[in-house]
């Protein structure tokens, strides 16, 4: 266990230190919202931010990715490559780190995704602990993602005029060293300080879901036929916003993009959404999730039920993005509370 202090006034020095060998991406204000973007200096970064429009999954699993190039008339791809760059994702929230863990679980699962694997290897994650709850949409307390646990190379915690940085991996150790701005601190002292800060922090976080972490799987197991899905389906406009902004949604479609001279092209994968009507359609136009209600239910079950059975892990990080992005004001808090209410009354 290694901990260091960083004076707040040295933040830009830290960014410059990281930038020597890495591309640095961090939360940046964009109009009234935030995005992860490349940064040149600390001034561009907003450390206190509402979850960004898109989660950092875009760096691991780009919205569009070339699987390979081809020449027309051939059967094998002429090349299968991926572009990588040593990158630091700076100031990721703990909920988003949990989202990365979910994606790692999927793409590392046999058969391992070769593109993801190469990209992931080049990415370092420096987290930034939220000391204040963000808004009414977040359910991180119930999902147990509001305090740092795993999945980061280093984690920064605000301690007044300085940050306490916890180093959690070899990669993190290499990044947070060889610079006088990082002041070594005895781990017992740092832990004690963090403990106090966290105790004060937790008082500010309230629970919005009526079900607890351990009750959720049981509630979902009993709610497949609930009328709540009908209501959600009636409001849903099948735009796919909720899945695009979700840190753990990874469904994709594949298509060929042909050059204008039709000599060849690229086979690509692109983010897809189970909320779109044709997603589960098969030949002959049979559709196994034709109703919006069944598609919305599928989304919720892919967060709270199916991955729990397959990977023993919730695929909801509690970040609240789906609720914020929904044009029809479908709220995850409301939906989950509705089925919980139904379930507990029975």
């Amino acid at each position: 266990m290694r901990y260091v202090y960083l004076e707040k006034s040295d933040l830009d020095k830290m960014i410059q230190h990281l930038k020597k060998e890495h591309r640095v991406v961090a939360p940046v204000a964009k109009e009234n919202l935030f995005v992860f973007a490349d940064v040149e200096n600390a001034e561009e970064i907003t450390l206190e931010y509402l979850p960004t429009i898109l989660p950092p999954k875009k760096y691991f699993f780009p919205p569009k990715q070339v699987l390979g190039e081809f020449t027309m008339g051939e059967t094998k791809m002429s090349s299968t490559t991926v572009e990588v760059e040593p990158t630091v994702i700076f100031a990721a929230h703990t909920c988003d780190i949990d989202g990365m863990e979910c994606l790692h679980t999927v793409f590392r699962n046999d058969p391992v995704d070769p593109y993801y694997k190469k990209i992931e290897k080049e990415i370092a994650v420096i987290g930034y602990e939220c000391m204040f709850p963000c808004d009414e949409c977040a359910t991180c307390v119930t999902m147990d993602t509001h305090v740092p646990k795993a999945g980061y190379d280093a984690m920064m915690t605000d301690a007044g005029d300085k940050f306490i940085i916890h180093i959690n991996s070899k990669k993190g150790d290499a990044l947070i060293s060889n610079n006088p701005i990082f002041k070594e601190v005895e781990s017992g002292t740092a832990k004690e300080e963090i403990k106090k800060l966290r105790a004060a922090k937790l008082k500010k976080f309230d629970v919005k879901l009526k079900a607890s972490y351990s009750e959720l799987p049981g509630i979902f197991a009993d709610s497949y036929d609930s009328d709540v899905w009908e209501g959600v389906g009636k409001r849903c406009v099948s735009c796919g916003n909720c899945t695009a902004v979700c840190p753990t949604c990874y469904c994709f479609d594949m298509y060929d993009e042909v050059k204008l001279d039709i000599s060849g092209g690229e086979r690509k994968r692109v983010w897809d959404s189970c909320q779109l009507e044709e997603f589960a359609e098969v030949a002959g136009n049979e559709n196994f999730r034709e109703e919006r209600s069944s598609r919305q239910r599928h989304r919720y079950y892919r967060k709270f039920d199916y991955p729990v059975k397959k990977y023993n892990k919730f695929f909801c990080t509690g970040c609240g993005r789906c609720t914020r992005a929904c044009m029809a004001e479908i709220s995850l808090v409301e939906t989950v509370n509705d089925i919980t209410k139904e379930n507990k009354n029975v």
Binding site: M77, T80, T81, V84, E85, P86, M254
Partner: peptide, 13 residues
């Protein structure tokens, strides 16, 4: 930083 184009296992080829 070093942007690099690297070969991947041709799983989709």
């Amino acid at each position: 930083t070093k942007k690099q184009v690297i070969e991947v296992d041709p799983q989709y080829s």
